[in-house]
Design a protein around this nucleic acid. Structure first.
Length: 553
RNA sequence: GGGCCCGUAGUUCAACGGAUAGAGCACUUGGCUUCGAACCAAGAGAUCCGGGUUCGAUUCCUGGCGGGCCCA
């Protein structure tokens, strides 16, 4: 398969530009980005390099742009290179190159975007990891979308990556959950049994108590706790399945205790001299750790001899490294952002490269019903379960909505709007393009113009020369770059926004350039290949977001 | 009180330090006997307020104001 066109151009242009710079006595920055030309410029690519280079020399940026444009114009893939004030070089890519790229997409859509010589590092992405003490709520949906999309995107790029869900099933909360469930059970049987003071209040505990097997009458809080946690965890698994979020492993905290990893990790940290004792407790010196931004030291083992949650968390992350992952990504909701500095400190205490650990903190979702804010409170039991949204809005709309935004955005989610299933939801805008194209292919099969499965000839560039066609050819070329952006930013939002833009370019083409009733059969076939490329990229792009691409809607 | 994040069009959101700040929805006016009108064309509409760095700031630094979250 041909190398992706933009990636190739980036390499070729950079290399030629460096030759040019060397012969002109200039120095160029280490990174030479190639970006799409802005809409008001009639070009495909835009280079701001002369602006950056002009600083050190006495020539004007525009002069340098003229000179650079001359040096680049002779490249085989380049149609024209024009200097533009204040010092850009705008490039038009040869249509033949874009057409070759189009043909390559349709030949093997599943590999479009794969980096042949990418990193061999193994990445582990941990996300959701909600406590099994209550149903998953909306915020988990955002974390699930970010994590799952990232896994899919990185796999598409050719990375080795695995996903995990960490289950906090050890410690005191099992018993507290059990006591809460037991109280609900006894209330159902007419007893005056108050839920423990700091216990769990949610309505779901009622359902859980009602569904308990007959022998539960004799259970103590611990047994109730195991039962409750099992059934809540089973619900989490079902919710994640319904949300199309896949985890390669559900890692249980109790496994760490069972294997002795917790005390071993403590010994390991002691051996590295990272631990001290004070007031009968054992501490990790996170405050003064290398590169630490934590605001105080953290307890690992309390004065009563019990470990805090922090110690098994460290043991879990050590285990990730021990299993051969050299790049860890954790995805948190903003309510856990305070956790990040101490985990970074712990990574340093383990002797790992700080850059090998990345935390994505996504902001929480503000829920509305129309204009009325809905407060989320797990304790009060008034949160909106993720399941309710999946059932009423659909996981496609929900995932696409979350995938469109950067993790940093404090996004608003209007339940009434989302439930409308109307065109107000952007996912339909993209899916509609896919359905429209599939419809054209059905018609093309009926009329015999293009039997299913038949291959289309590589297009003659002259037959895809209208601006609407050129714009699509160009946009399709950027798909692999968008995947790289998503990986770099650890977020699917560049991809989701790209799909909106691609869809937005298809409709005008559709209105102005008939495919089946084209001027002649050769043009019809060229346009069929073009829309096949659009269809494939939308289908693959939506798939990376975990969103379906219906053939009819 | 300290820390993290945010403030862009009526609204929900984009924009590696680059050019005339882009989309969806909503609004106004047009467009279905012609591949799907969940669409298109045209119109109107925005960077919270001061300073600073830079050839160039929505972006970086700094001081306010406003909001979300965490800690004390």
């Amino acid at each position: 398969m041909a190398e992706m066109i933009i990636a190739r151009l980036r390499r070729v242009l950079s290399s030629r530009a460096r030759e040019w710079a060397a012969s002109s006595g200039l120095s160029l920055p280490a990174s030479l980005p190639v970006s799409a030309a802005p809409s008001h410029v009639k070009a495909d690519l835009s280079l701001p390099w002369p602006l950056a280079a002009a600083k050190a020399v006495k020539r004007s940026p525009l002069d340098l742009a003229r000179s650079l444009a001359e040096a680049l114009e002779s490249l085989p893939e380049i149609e024209s290179a024009e200097p533009a004030p204040p010092g850009f070089v705008n490039l038009v890519v040869k249509s033949t190159a874009l057409c070759a790229n189009l043909k390559a997409i349709t030949l093997d859509p599943k590999r479009y975007g794969k980096e042949e010589n990418g990193t061999t590092k193994k990445t582990l992405i941990e996300f959701v990891s909600a406590n099994p003490t209550g149903p998953l709520h909306m915020a988990s949906g955002r974390g699930a979308t970010l994590g799952d999309c990232l896994v899919r995107i990185m796999r598409r790029l050719g990375r080795t990556v695995a996903s995990e869900y960490y289950v906090n099933d050890a410690g005191g909360r099992v018993e507290l959950l059990g006591a809460s469930a037991k109280a609900r059970y006894e209330q159902r049987h007419g007893k005056d049994a108050p839920v423990p003071e700091k216990g769990y209040q949610g309505e779901y505990l009622n359902d859980l108590a009602a569904a308990a097997p007959p022998e539960c009458a004799g259970w103590d809080a611990q047994q109730w706790g195991l039962y409750a946690m099992d059934s809540i965890l089973a619900q989490h698994r079902e919710d994640m399945k319904a949300f199309d979020a896949h985890f390669d492993r559900w890692y249980q905290e109790s496994e760490l205790f069972a294997s002795g990893a917790v005390p071993k990790t403590l010994e390991y940290l002691k051996g590295r001299g990272m631990v001290f004792e004070k007031e009968n407790a054992v501490w990790l010196g996170t405050l003064k750790a290398e590169g630490s931004s934590d605001d105080k030291d953290r307890v690992l083992v309390k004065s009563d001899g019990k470990p805090t949650y922090f110690l098994p968390d460290i043991a879990y992350h050590k285990d990730k490294y021990d299993r051969g992952y050299d790049r860890l990504i954790d995805i948190f909701g903003a309510d856990h952002h305070g956790y990040v500095p101490r985990m970074k400190a712990a990574i340093a205490a383990l002797g790992k490269e700080p850059d090998s650990y990345r935390a994505v903190v996504h902001q929480l979702i503000h829920l509305f019903r129309g204009t009325e804010a809905v407060k989320m409170s797990k304790r009060a039991g008034t949160f909106i379960p993720l399941r309710e949204i999946i059932d009423e809005v659909g996981k496609d709309a929900c995932r696409f909505f979350f995938a469109l935004r950067t993790p940093d955005s404090h996004l608003n989610f209007d339940l009434e709007l989302a439930k409308k299933q109307s065109s107000e939801n952007p996912v339909f805008y993209v899916q509609y393009v896919h359905a429209r194209i599939c419809s054209i292919f059905r018609k093309a099969a009926e009329t015999g113009l293009h039997p299913p499965g038949a291959s289309l000839p590589p297009p003659d560039a002259d037959r895809l020369a209208f601006p609407e066609e050129r714009a699509l050819l160009n946009k399709l070329a950027w798909f692999p770059e968008v995947l790289l952006d998503s990986e770099r930013l650890l977020s699917p939002h560049p991809l989701a926004n790209y799909l909106m833009e691609l869809a937005g370019l298809f409709h005008p083409f559709y209105e102005k350039r008939p495919v089946l009733a084209a001027e002649d059969p050769e043009i019809a076939k060229a346009r069929l290949l073009l829309i096949a490329g659009v269809r494939d990229v939308i289908r693959e792009g939506l798939d990376l977001l975990g969103v379906s691409a219906p053939e009819q809607m």
